[in-house]
Simulated scan of single mutants.
Amino acid sequence: MANKKVLKVGLDSAAPFPMHSDYNAGNFEGFEVDLLQAVTNHLNLEVEYEVSLWSTILEKLFKGELDIICSAVTVTASREHILEFSNPYLYFRLCAVVDKDDSLSGLPHFKNKTIGVREATEAERYVREQFPGNNIVYAVTNKELYRKLQAGKIDMLIDDSPIAGGFLQNNKKLKIGMFLPKTDSAYAIAMKKGDVKLKTQFNETLSLLKENGTYQQIYKKWFSEIQF
């Protein structure tokens, strides 16, 4: 029997759960893990994961050190210039997470607030554009970011809503203060520019998984308790 083709898959070391957990923690799981397994099983591909810092992961793919990234990659116009994207597999928004006793009624509330973001993310780009005058605090991992908020070092943090939702499941001291207007976004699988054959295979398989109900089962398993 011929060996399966191996797909080198890039993962964010900061583990954006429930998309995926920490690869090195033994219990590797998440929405993207199940989805990618379903896709690659259908295509008879073998997956080899490689963990990278978020700040360098897209560059690794661009250089061809990875075949794909399936790790909460937001589709943006600038990324589409240098990478191929599958059809989106999850739609979401950015949100502001605050202490459960705080309230946010709108963007004017953000004035003079210290805002936390993870570096090299779309949340960071949004904050820099929308609130250039604010004090911005950077974190490398999600855990570090949420810890800063719990410790009162920042007034709020901006994050992708599914990831915030996953974090808040186990943390009743924080809440989503508001979803940010005009931040409708999507996650998709990123591939090397020109990798059109693989992209077509992925898109066809994603459509099939939606048609046969597999996608819905995986979605329900990971997001039945999460609002985003």
Rank of each mutant, 00 (worst) to 15 (best):
A2S: 12
N3G: 14
N3A: 14
K4H: 07
K5Q: 14
V6E: 09
V9S: 05
V9C: 14
D12C: 09
A15W: 01
F17Q: 04
P18E: 10
M19Q: 10
H20C: 11
E29C: 12
E29V: 09
V33A: 10
L35V: 10
L36P: 00
L36D: 01
A38W: 01
A38R: 04
A38L: 08
H42Y: 10
N44K: 14
L45V: 04
E46L: 12
V47Q: 06
E50C: 05
V51M: 05
V51R: 06
S55E: 14
E59G: 09
L61N: 02
K63L: 14
K63C: 03
G64W: 04
L66R: 04
I68E: 00
C70Q: 05
S71R: 06
A72S: 15
T76N: 12
A77T: 11
R79P: 05
R79G: 11
R79M: 10
I82C: 10
S86T: 11
N87R: 12
F92M: 10
F92T: 01
C95E: 01
C95I: 00
C95Y: 01
C95P: 00
V98T: 12
D99Y: 01
D101L: 08
D101N: 15
L104I: 12
L104S: 06
S105P: 00
G106W: 07
P108M: 10
H109S: 15
H109D: 15
F110V: 04
F110S: 07
T114F: 01
A123E: 02
N134V: 02
I136M: 09
A139W: 00
V140I: 12
K143F: 04
R147D: 13
R147F: 02
L149T: 01
I154M: 11
I154K: 02
D155E: 11
L157F: 03
D159C: 04
D159M: 03
D160S: 13
D160M: 08
P162H: 10
A164Y: 00
L168A: 09
Q169P: 00
K172M: 05
L174G: 05
F179K: 08
F179Q: 08
L180A: 11
A186G: 10
A188T: 02
A188G: 15
M191G: 09
G194K: 06
D195P: 00
K199L: 11
N203D: 15
L206W: 03
L209M: 11
K210T: 03
K210E: 15
G213A: 08
Q216W: 05
Q217N: 14
I218E: 07
I218W: 03
Y219W: 14
Y219F: 15
K220F: 08
K221R: 13
W222N: 07
I226T: 09
